[in-house]
Write a protein that binds this DNA or RNA. Sequence first.
DNA 1: AAGATACTCAACCGCTTGGAA
DNA 2: GTTCCAAGCGGTTGAGTATCT
Length: 265
Amino acid sequence: MKKQVSTNEEFKRGAWKPEEDLILKRYIEANGEGKWTTVSKKSGLMRSAKSCRMRWKNHLRPNIKHGQISEDEEDLIIRMHKLLGNRWSLIAGRIPGRTDNEVKNYWNTHLSKRNLNHQGQSMNSVNFNCKKRRSMVSDTNDTQTISIVSTKQQDESNIFNGSDERVDAQLSNPSSTTSTSSGAEEVNAVQRYATSTTPDNSAAGDTLKIISEEEIYSCWLSDEPTFYVPFVPSLDYSILPFDSLDNNYEDCWTNKLRLHDLVED
DNA sequence: AAGATACTCAACCGCTTGGAA
DNA sequence: GTTCCAAGCGGTTGAGTATCT
């Protein structure tokens, strides 16, 4: 696309030629991926390490899917973006063969305008900036807290082991209503769930924090989860960016989320 | 036919992160 | 604890192409 830019700098810039692609591909096939400064120097390409890495990652690496984004892929992008915001690499990680650059471009050219009108209708349709997510989760004004009055000393003594009874109770929380841009009232579909201040052995007196589905997702996706959540069968665990679909999502949800911010009334 | 405008997307840029020294 | 550097990320740019007038 970009025309070759004449430059006095050390590295060549602009669009890659087929012969350059071939050189880079052969070099990486022979020497492996990574060490991009070495690739840059030893491949014979007069390209920067960044340029080599980008070209490989976005165009030359195996299993890259080129061409039209399918409806399924588009749907996934929209759903993921609603939850994650502009975290393109995370989104792309859930769409085999697509790169973050491609997803980003597709969003900016095809989807951003279409989805603009939907933003703001839900308090959770927030672009989760990576660095803001933690504070958003803990600072949200819409947060409610409840206290456990009693718990049975059997299965339900730990409400975070997937007790359907407890989950159902949370699902019954009333949904809020919001105004649309057209002025009409519509039901906010965001469900609310309970979290805990402790991972295990929740007991009477524990405080639960009522949060949204999106907050659960964003909490899990953050590097430092802020609270524990129960396993909620109705959530779509498949959208989470695990490396392998073989992960036991239930274990992940019940055991791995850690508490950082105690919730108080 | 030709110029203007809009759209697409590859490539670049600046910043952040994480590991090694 | 600090500095340095490689790698990765998201935002932006701008050439090429398509569409409109």
